[in-house]
Simulated scan of single mutants.
Amino acid sequence: MFSKNFKLGLLGGGQLGRMLLQAAIDLDIHVKALDPDPDAPCAKIAPEFVVGSFLDYDTVYQFGQDCEVITIEIENVNLEALKKLRSEGKKVFPQPEVLEIIQDKRVQKQFYLDNNLPTSDFILTDSVEDISKNLNFLPAFNKLGKGGYDGRGVQKLSSEIDLPLAFTEPSLLEKAIDFDKEIAVIVARNEHGEIKTFPTVECVFHPVYNLVEYLFAPAAVTESIHEEAKQIAIETAEKLGIVGLLAVEMFLTKDGKILINEVAPRTHNSGHHTIRANHTSQFEQHLRAVLGLPLGDTSAHSKAAMVNLLGEDGYTGEAKYVGMNEALAIAGVYPFLYGKKITKPFRKMGHVTVVDENLDSLKEKVNIVKEKLKVIA
């Protein structure tokens, strides 16, 4: 891959792809990106950018013809085209079979059960009628099998009164967990079987929109919890056989059990802080993993937090950032803007990494950033 003829294909041109491109520049890797949005975050910085659907067979197949390795920044892509490309000698990481499991939350949950991986109780449902037959299972989260992301496709059902909110498509009921913390571990695995994990992080989710609002790294948990979470992440990656990055989101219950919530086979919101806080970022690690390179040192050189920069409620239009001067005046505060022209309520417009050796000072900086830095129109 360290030649002028090598080309890495990237399905997806969003903010994850943008940060992957920034890591690829350091290794002088030529990346060709595909996205349906001509104004996607990758559009202006990708060495090659193709406008087209990563869900369309012909588009993906043609896109991959001149790429040696093909990877993703979004899992909802055309798998049949990827399988065809692989049969013709292209390397595709993560593998289509892994994406097939993860694309459908129903299949994903069954995979945990079949492989003795700890997860919450669940019931597969095909209709609202199925859900109405299992009212004694509530409260539970109703999750769409396919198509949900960033909180979309998830609905809490507390009782029979909430049935009108239930999904009519194939979905699942996942038992609501009385958890103490939501934690995550990102694990990388290359095709030689080398595995490395990033330290466990603690995620705080938005109470309404079910997406990460901010996180702290490392998580405030015992060393034994750190180790158990790490081992669960490694076992999940090994049983999937994934080549690439895997973000494993977990619940830590109030009685000290760790249960897998969901996984993502790519770079992830729970690893953004690693660009500034760790010796190797998750984006560089993903490149190392899919290109068969030795995995990098994942240890942290500082405590860190990450605050998602979301579009303010009530504002839609051309994005304006207020409070940037105040944020940049604080030592250890690093904004990352995604290059999205238009803001709308709770759209991910960027993130801010905060680093500090002192936990109290770190939390104080996070509160200032959350208070001062806003995206309006």
Rank of each mutant, 00 (worst) to 15 (best):
S159P: 03
K340H: 02
D35H: 09
I342R: 05
I183G: 00
K344D: 04
V98N: 00
L99V: 06
H268R: 12
H279L: 14
H279C: 02
D356I: 09
K374P: 02
D35K: 07
Q65C: 04
S127T: 15
N278V: 01
G311F: 10
P94D: 02
A247G: 11
G314N: 10
A229D: 11
F251I: 03
A166N: 06
E182H: 09
F336W: 05
V154T: 14
A188W: 01
D66W: 02
G241R: 14
A237I: 04
Y321K: 04
P36H: 07
L215R: 09
V322I: 15
A217Q: 00
R152Q: 14
D39R: 13
I29N: 00
A237W: 03
K254G: 11
I376M: 12
V243K: 03
L240T: 08
Q108M: 12
L215D: 08
V60R: 04
I234Q: 08
T316Q: 10
G193R: 09
L240R: 02
F93V: 02
N116V: 03
A264V: 09
V92M: 06
E80H: 03
A46M: 07
H206S: 10
D356R: 10
S158V: 08
T316V: 04
F179W: 09
F167T: 03
V31W: 11
R106Q: 10
P118E: 04
I25C: 06
K143L: 15
E238T: 12
V107N: 05
K374W: 13
V128K: 11
L99Q: 02
D297H: 04
K341C: 11
G17A: 01
D360A: 11
E97V: 03
K303R: 14
